[in-house]
Design a binder for these strands. Structure first.
Lengths: 172, 172
DNA sequence: TCTTTGAAATATGTAACAGAATTCAAAAAG
DNA sequence: CTTTTTGAATTCTGTTACATATTTCAAAGA
């Protein structure tokens, strides 16, 4: 048995051939979270397949490539984590905008409340959801249900604009 | 200066007094993800405040305790990550169930399709959303829009039950 | 009684290490 | 000449080890 190989260029496992394709570093984490974090990082558990209904041809299966790729709900629905909160809708005053009693609203405080946007406002210490309309310098809060009257919005007294609704989550 | 302290019970930093309140262990992670993971673990970035609309008294602010606590969208909407996928709804055949054109559907394949559930089925290689009705041993797929006809569902030929819709996500 | 001080004990970020994995070219086999 | 085997070289990877920081308590000092 004589020498095989020897010092030479290109020998050995290539740099950057790890599972992430980039350098790694040890980080100390709480034991109970390690498994969850590894799934989060390695398998991108939060990214689930997204298919199209009503246009898809063929027979989609998890083995196929996703018709519209993968989706992370948090990343998709929450663009500004620091400025986002959720609100539970009550009543049917916004039924025309597809907001039902008990629906979960995603609200972004960093968006500007333009004309036509659905907004969350607090009036007399109570949170409420309405569509905002600006007309001749006057701002109206309009329910999307003919049973309810529009409200004139003035930043004074106890009225305060709270954020713009970006998504409605309805449970079946 | 003489000796102070000395060997004695109760001295020193207490066990379990770390920021997580439980043991930690080093884990090797890709450098680019470390910051994101630390936020994920330490600050629970995905858990955003949840308020109540229409019933809340007082003036909620991030400083207050959340009216209904904190919510993680993924944990809330995706109970079975391995069995869940998303589908993009097309058309208005389910408008009566609050499903509009372009809405995102959360679909769970691990749930059993009972009578009255909204389901995703593939018929002739196309994904479609309908409400399932079982009647005298016959299974119907019923659109919630009078403009569309019910469909009789038979597991044979090209029909295949794909999952149960648990949530509808509507963008404004 | 209140404040200061230092030893004791654990927390924490990272270097270091041992074993696994991977690659390449020389050697061996066909 | 072509294909297969082999072993050195090199990096990856999970974990241990360690130096430093942090926290606590009781004794000493004011």
């Amino acid at each position: 048995m004589t020498k095989q190989g020897g010092r030479r260029d290109g020998a050995g496992r290539p740099k950057g051939s790890n599972q992430y394709g980039e350098p790694t570093r040890p980080v100390r984490l709480p034991v109970s979270q390690i498994e969850r974090v590894l799934r989060f990082v390695r398998e991108r558990e939060h990214e689930l397949p997204l298919y199209a209904c009503g246009v898809s041809a063929g027979f989609p299966s998890p083995a196929d490539d996703y018709a519209e790729g993968a989706l992370d709900l948090n990343a998709h629905l929450v663009r500004q984590p620091a400025a986002t909160f959720f609100a539970r809708a009550r009543g049917d005053s916004m039924i025309g905008a597809g907001i039902h009693d008990g629906d979960l609203l995603v609200v972004d405080r960093s968006l500007t409340a333009e004309d036509g946007k659905v907004v969350v406002v607090s009036i007399n210490g109570e949170l409420t959801v309405k569509r905002m309309r600006r007309e001749k310098g006057i701002t109206w809060l309009i329910p999307e249900n003919p049973d309810y009257p529009p409200i004139r919005f003035q930043e004074q007294d106890e009225a305060h604009l709270w954020g713009v609704v970006t998504n409605v989550i309805h449970s079946l």
